[in-house]
């Protein structure tokens, strides 16, 4: 093999190193710490050591005694104790985890269906001649590009009860547990409905005009065309969007982090937020890793179910 052929390995190397360092290693290491308890202690001792000259002989002071120096000896001891499934078992008995799962599920059940329905309706609206359609479409998709954490902080001022733009409603957006979760969902809906809209619009524009024309000639009404032609045709797209949104929504973190801090109480503390807090605020990294793997398992089950359904439908 000529060296110029081997050079491809050089170009592949950064990508391989990147994946190994930032994907495979964290995955493996977090699994390791989920099964182990790691403790590190540092013992510091001060000892007197003789001062030696270049020849290695003790240096004497003016009274002929060996000169000494203080040396700090530091001994860091790391202990790793295998704890088996302890962290995973805690997941089943910890009320905070149960509460966070409930919050996450309620959030997914509120946000995702609304995003899909709204996105689809807006896509239907934009799939017909409309003045300034391209400009409106560009404006519509802007929220997708906003950073969720920045959105959280922006909506904090919007939901502010005393003097915020929505203060006239008199709704306790952030201080009432039920409204707070709805507020979090509202921000998510605002941000991700455009994504659903964009995908649905692309799918709608791929539907052949002949089909719709034929349906109209056969006397199909508007609802008939929607429910008997468009929705069946768009089913694969809808399933994909649903899958993507669920997989993303169960990882909810940024918005409650910035908007509510998980409160009031635990009303908006999602599962990811709890894992973050456990790991990087309380430094219970083993338990946090177990939580992350729990979440990964749930997401994978959802993904597998959907792929199975897709395979059954479309071979």
């Amino acid at each position: 093999m000529r060296w110029t052929s081997r050079v491809r390995f050089l170009f592949l190397a950064p990508a391989v190193v990147w994946v190994l360092l930032f994907t495979i290693f964290p995955l493996g290491y977090s699994l390791f710490i989920a099964f182990n308890k790691i403790d590190q202690t540092t013992q510091v001792e001060r000892v007197k050591e003789p001062v030696l000259d270049e020849a290695g002989q003790p240096v004497l002071d003016s009274k002929g005694r060996p000169r000494t120096k203080n040396v700090v000896v530091r001994n860091t001891v790391t202990t790793t104790e295998f704890v088996g499934l302890t962290n995973f078992k805690r997941l089943f008995t910890d009320p905070q985890v149960h509460e966070a799962i409930k919050v996450t599920l309620v959030f997914v059940l509120i946000a995702v269906p609304i995003e899909l329905c709204l996105g689809f309706l807006i896509a239907l609206l934009f799939n017909r001649p409309l003045m300034g359609r391209s400009t409106l479409r560009a404006i519509m998709i802007l929220p997708i590009f906003a950073t969720p954490i920045a959105m959280g902080y922006s909506f904090f001022t919007i939901f502010y009860e005393e003097g915020g733009p929505l203060a006239f409603t008199g709704i306790p957006w952030l201080s009432n547990p039920n409204w707070a979760l709805f507020s979090v969902a509202l921000v998510d809906i605002w941000q991700w409905t455009p994504f659903c809209f964009l995908v649905f619009l692309a799918a709608l524009q791929g539907v052949p005009d002949e089909l719709l024309e034929a349906a109209r000639i056969d006397g199909a009404s508007g609802p008939d065309i929607l429910f008997k032609v468009l929705l069946p045709l768009l089913q694969p797209t809808i399933i994909i969007v649903l899958l993507l949104r669920i997989a993303e929504a169960v990882k909810l973190f940024d918005i409650p982090f910035a908007l509510t801090g998980g409160g009031p109480g635990t009303a908006t503390q999602s599962f990811s937020f709890l894992a973050f807090r456990t790991g990087l605020r309380f430094f219970d990294l083993g338990y946090a890793s177990a939580m992350a793997y729990g979440l990964l398992a749930v997401v994978m089950v959802v993904v597998l179910l959907f792929f199975r359904r897709l395979r059954q439908s479309y071979g």
Partner: peptide, 21 residues
Amino acid sequence: PEANEYYQIILTEVQKCISGQ
């Protein structure tokens, strides 16, 4: 040592109290 966990417990429970939960 668990000062931060303690604060979070206080915040969470007191917020529940104030918000009527």
